[in-house]
Design a protein around this nucleic acid. Structure first.
Lengths: 238, 238
DNA sequence: CGCGGGATGTGATGTGCGTCACAGGCAACA
DNA sequence: TGTTGCCTGTGACGCACATCACATCCCGCG
């Protein structure tokens, strides 16, 4: 995993939380290791906990009867994820695939509730975090539904810039390799379509490749294609 | 509005809240009237408040540069909606169209924060409500993306049953009229496609019309088409 | 009554994108 | 050094759905 040595990037969705509250959350969780290739949970497993990713990479996927699967979220170091809902026997609706060896902090929903109950400021921060996650889903929804596959791809590339991007002059290098198939699964398209669309973007000079990494050369044009609304970078992520 | 006299239907998304907490929320809001045809807010307006719909009907829509618009949510009496997020100058990302004369309670985010800060149990309930809303968005996402337009339509019909449905023997009457264009805007399709799909569902005996209202005759077959996961009715709504 | 405007129903045609098939390229490994 | 497996690249073809164009139908209103 050579990218483990890459400079620290901006990847966490836990910026909503103050230092001290993040500490409080850390106190109620216990660590767990998860190997690349394994699953943290499956669709249908009881959903009574949250996860704080301390190291590694985990993606949430959803697959249908025919076995076709979609990548809905990709989480990195510093991200908090999991399902909170009011049903007693709530179950996960996604699969959590561990794509790189990971260390996760597990938080029982019960424990979290106690903490929220006790600390009003944490509750407010937590509410904002949840709002952020919800809006992230909504904007992704919009991007994937409203502007066809090219729009969905461009939006995804912008999100990748916000998550893994490293500025190099007026270009942006996406410091993490994604195969065409992975990109396809993120936007609900086929590998072939992604391939052709990337080809088009290359010939029009909007992007270029550095080996197998993507370089965005004209971010503005990407934004035009998906009618980007320039929402905050913390929200517009994978 | 003859449906105002219909028996009370199950429409509220505020079931997460206990009686007493709902009261506390009611205390910090002030009422506002909104006429059918007006807008409660527009895309780009500051988003610093929540809304509790006491009467009427409001839909959230999103439109793109070409003027095509999508109906994302439809809210009814008893529903709470609005955007909570951690950004200082956060703006709404949808339009709120008032489709029937409405009375809404307006809740300032600041006031809500104070309340959450003070009442731990309310904070926990609020968290669950937010989780519920988020999952509602996620399941809709799944339904609209994964099973083509017919799947999206069937899922929408099921949601309409859960929101406006009235059982009549083993059939379900959707007690609220929606035009083909409205249905189309809910699933991101064209009126013509919806028309043809409804036609197909009629000929296969899955649904029938009672005047301009839809009767679902074979809910099971609808569920098969969109690979329904039988999630709780409180979640699977419009 | 007849008129007008919105809703529905349906055919012809276009197109975005999926499906299928296959040809290279590149890295890991025997 | 050749083999194996995964990835990229590209043409041919088909289908789902949008688009366009009209023909009703329905209902309120002068």
């Amino acid at each position: 995993m050579k990218y483990a040595e890459q400079p620290e990037l901006h990847v966490a969705n836990t910026e909503c939380f103050s230092e001290s509250n993040l500490l409080k959350i850390q106190e109620i969780m216990y660590d767990m290791k998860a190997e690349a290739g394994s699953h943290l949970f499956w669709e249908g497993d009881p959903a009574d906990r949250l996860y704080f990713l301390k190291q590694g990479r985990i993606r949430l996927t959803k697959s249908n009867d025919e076995g076709k699967s979609y990548i809905l979220y990709v989480y990195n170091k510093g991200d908090l994820f999991g399902q909170v809902d009011p049903f007693v026997h709530s179950v996960n609706s996604f699969n959590a695939e561990v794509t790189e060896d990971s260390i996760v902090g597990v938080i029982q929903q019960k424990d979290l509730e106690v903490l929220l109950w006790q600390h009003g400021d944490l509750a407010v921060e937590f509410m904002k975090w949840m709002g952020l996650m919800h809006r992230m889903t909504q904007t992704k929804f919009r991007d994937l539904m409203m502007f066809g596959k090219p729009g969905a791809l461009c939006s995804t590339l912008i999100r990748l810039c916000n998550t893994y991007g490293k500025e190099q002059g007026d270009e942006i290098l996406i410091t993490k390799k994604f195969t065409n198939s992975e990109l396809a699964d993120m936007i609900g398209a086929t590998r072939e379509s992604v391939n052709r669309m990337l080809g088009d973007l290359k010939t029009s000079g909007i992007l270029a490749m550095n080996g197998s990494l993507i370089i965005i050369k004209k971010l503005d044009e990407l934004k035009t294609i998906c009618q980007c609304e320039n929402c905050p970078k913390d929200m517009c992520r994978i």
